[in-house]
Nucleic acid binder design. Sequence first.
RNA 1: GCGGUAGUGGCGAAGUGGUUAACGCACCGGAUUGUGGCUCCGGCACGCGUGGGUUCGAUUCCCACCUACCGCCCCA
Length: 426
Amino acid sequence: MKMKYQKPKGTADILPPYSNEWQFVEKNARETFALYNYDEIRTPIFESFEVFSRSAGDTSDIVTKEMYDFDDKGGRHIALRPEGTAGVVRAFVENKLYGPEHQKPVKVYYMGPMFRYERPQSGRLREFHQIGVEAFGSVSPKMDVETIAMAMDFLKKVKVTGLKLVINTLGDKESRDNYRQALIDYLEPHYDELSDDSKERLHKNPLRVLDSKDKNDQKFVADAPEILDYLTDNAREHFESVKNQLEALGIEYIVDSTMVRGLDYYNHTIFEIMVANSPLGKGEVTICAGGRYNGLVEELGGPEVPGVGFGLGVERLLLLLNEETQDMLQTKQLDFYVVGIGDAVQNETLKIVHELRQMGFATEQDYLDRKPKAQFKSADKLNAKFVVTVGESEMNDHVFKLKNMMTGDEQTIALKEIRTLKDLLK
RNA sequence: GCGGUAGUGGCGAAGUGGUUAACGCACCGGAUUGUGGCUCCGGCACGCGUGGGUUCGAUUCCCACCUACCGCCCCA
């Protein structure tokens, strides 16, 4: 009896030719980030559970229900990373990247798998991938803006259209505390009318009530006090500055004062980049989200070092690549296919294939002892630009045939002239 | 965690409580003894997600489970 193995629920195999799309996205990310002087950082895919629970906030959904965690054989409580920032911050602190020998700000990016234990759905998996960046050591709004600009640049580079930048501020601690109280004062009288979820959130994390999808809740939210009215002077200045600079760069944005992030560590600027009319589903989908997190480094045992960053969902982004890009990336490109006819020419074709590859041409041959017809068929399937044919007669005459698959023209060329082929493709 | 829909060859997709499970694509072979994209001919599921049950008999009916997709929650 044969066992049938299946990939774990909520995971995906990334197969050719789609893996080309991944490489395309990753390559553009690296190139874009390099322009902004970011370097790559690689951190473990799993961390101590506390790294995430400490940073994301004990009441966040990620910690309470979505963490992919387990005890290892040594009894350690481990969690597969649900997002990238916490691990990077942990590494920043542990390796003392805040030390004086490191240029500030410290700017890093990462790309890799993340895990959340939840019900798979379109654009949502248990193992998914994010590309993210973090910049440590600057409180300047310039840093916030640069981060946002970089995300937009990257998305434009991979030709995603219909981008919509939404920003908001959560202010500093004082702003937030004041606002939190104002929000509780406002919602408290309506307690009995709120949805169960929101009742739960009201005292634990009232900001999340703003985020409620419940229609009834939204009625209250519409008239709720706005964070913008509770900002301290400092927080207001910061936000104004961010907006001014975005305008200076010609980056369009809208302010959504009800936008909240799922992670508790954010303060001051938060932002999301959404795309409308996506194939992901109806309405808008967030493909990139981030913001400032000034207390997080301290929270994880480091000094008082501010940070800004964003995370971007690769699977979601891939669904948004336009058709031309997808076609381009999924089309096989081969320079030469070498057809051998008869056993006697085996070594001859082997040498030609090798030679062509040495010359820098993507070259393929038959490995299944198939007839010329079948070999040509393969050449066609592989989109080979040229086919080199060698049979016994050619071998004896020290020549080969060269066929242009586009035009169908075929000519005979002396074997010793094979090097002249390098002028064929350019 | 909750609700809905679905699961037939490599892919797409018909189908019926009972002899050999349509068809299309792909693939392989032949027509064309050494040449692709067109055409024609032939081949290609001891099997209908897994495990139970009902039945003389189930891919088809029932139950459970698994997985996928969609929605809720939440989010990338």
